[in-house]
Design a binder for these strands. Structure first.
Lengths: 226, 226
DNA sequence: ACGGCACTGGGTACGCTGTTCGCAAAGAAC
DNA sequence: GTTCTTTGCGAACAGCGTACCCAGTGCCGT
């Protein structure tokens, strides 16, 4: 007696018996994603999704084992938005930077992705395809496999960091960032922490220069070149 | 009429009037931290903390405006665990790597820190001290201030990433990582995704070699050297 | 063709959460 | 001594994820 797979990705959506379902994972995921896009991750509750679909909260559990699984579906759905059709060009740095730009675009379209704790939401099939794509670009490099994985993980981390800072800089509308700015201002004007004050006072880099283009190649070089 | 400060760090704990409080922020924070250490961040609810302190849930709101503020107190409390007494040595790389080791130790003592979304929990006074310490080590470098800030942010990101992977590798006891491993195994044995399979099959680096020592200097070099 | 069974829909309900309100008691300020 | 601010906290509210149960539905084996 083999157990039912614990991973949602190995669990078939339908076994064939019984009445044909009125919904499916894709539809539920789409509803959840549009809800998150519109009102943030906090608005993604089973009840709201169900209401959006015109059904009851309990019905969703026919398609998903838990809310966390639904979050995984959402994350993988947006992972599927990046285009992986272009084969490796031979220039791995350019390939990875291009990938990073696409991932950043996805993050910008779905800022709630930043609220998903990276270690708690797992890797789905689209994310795996993305990973394979990145590793294919690195295929020519004579570097241990785990080191390549680290480099790709760092790439994702950098993209998330970049989007986070650019969102914080752009919109200080939230009460949270108001409080944050209030405190940071008090600290810098207090005179203690001179290095911090100096660093914050430094002119930001030219707007045209892209953070990804500036940082990523240097960092990848540090990680992947001997 | 000036508004009351939105940041908890600028709000005095006591104004002097009324009866003397039975608790204080430090005590509440300590209770919350020990609760999180023992049973994870999910166990940190206002009711449980209050019960631990022998009081009612509503009483906590005399000391803290919201649960999120309490999380900030917790994060800053562990940020205070790192020792910043050693002045810059003149070797900024060594200084930053040493700082990273201390931060990693703090993460290991309090793994729930990884569950705090980095962008949502703000920077408190201890974290600011830490930042100042790192910037002091970089004082001699002729590099724009914002670039230094980026580098320090990346340093923190790497430490978090490192602890996350080592915790996932160490304990696959949770149902989540079981599901994750199940899916990843299915993918690699399916034959699609050859690069991923190869990367995962690669021998892990020698256990003695420290991830921080291996990765950090190279990455910092990539970010901070011309 | 048909009986049985595996499945779906969804109302109801449980236990938990963060948070607000209101009131009694306590102590500093004038 | 009066006044005013602050504290403790029981009660309650709205919302959450999720388990349970029952009725209905359509495929499968015979």
């Amino acid at each position: 007696m083999t157990d039912r797979p614990r991973s949602i990705w190995l669990r078939p959506e339908r076994t064939g018996r019984g009445p044909v379902p009125e919904h499916d994972r894709a539809g539920i995921t789409a509803a959840a994603v549009s809800l998150a896009d519109a009102h943030g991750l906090g608005a993604v509750s089973m009840r709201r999704i169900a209401a959006e679909l015109g059904t009851g909260p309990a019905s969703l559990y026919r398609y998903v084992d838990s809310r966390d699984e639904l979050l995984e579906l959402m994350a993988d759905a947006v992972a599927g938005e990046v285009d992986l059709s272009r084969p490796p060009s031979g220039n791995w740095r350019a390939d990875l930077v291009a990938l990073a730009h696409q991932v950043r675009a996805a993050y910008r379209r779905h800022p709630w992705l930043l609220d998903l704790v990276p270690g708690r939401v797992g890797i789905g099939p689209r994310a795996v395809d993305q990973l394979e794509h990145a590793l294919a670009a690195l295929a020519g490099l004579d570097v241990p496999g785990p080191v390549k994985l680290e480099a790709v993980a760092m790439l994702n981390g950098i993209v998330a960091l970049a989007v986070r800072t650019e969102l914080q800089a752009g919109g200080s509308a939230t009460a949270w960032s108001a409080a944050q700015g209030e405190f940071l201002g008090a600290v810098t004007s207090a005179g203690t922490h001179p290095h911090l004050a100096a660093a914050l006072a430094g002119a930001p880099p030219a707007a045209e220069e892209d953070l990804l283009d500036r940082i990523l190649p240097r960092m990848l070089a540090g990680l992947l070149e001997p």
